[in-house]
Amino acid sequence: MSREEVAAAQGELLRSLLAGGSPPAGFDPGAIRVEAAALLGKRRRIVREIDPGTAEELGDRFAELFAEYALANPRRDGSRFREDAVAFAAWATERGHLRRARRRWWRRSG
């Protein structure tokens, strides 16, 4: 394994854990599922802390919707959790899960 090969293997592992890629060869698929769930849970907790209003309005659907959003939008290198929270709220609003009038930036600009 060269440095490039280590990099490729690490990228493949993260795609599998964060973006729905297949488990890389040799890994225990059960462990991949456990790790993926743990990473998703941590990301969801942080977004909930940053934007509790969105989580509160989505109520019981928050976890399920966040999982759907997260899989389609894995966190990019260099992105911030604050941006993640804003992007999730926008994603949920676009899909009609959040009332637009509740969005904080409306209140601020008003």
Binding site: M1, V6, Q10, A38, K42, D77
Partner: peptide, 18 residues
């Protein structure tokens, strides 16, 4: 971080020479 993604958590490295 790897492949343009950020795991948001501490991931183990392969325990290889490379």
């Amino acid at each position: 971080r790897a492949g343009g993604l950020d795991s948001g958590h501490l991931m183990p490295v392969p325990r290889t020479r490379d």
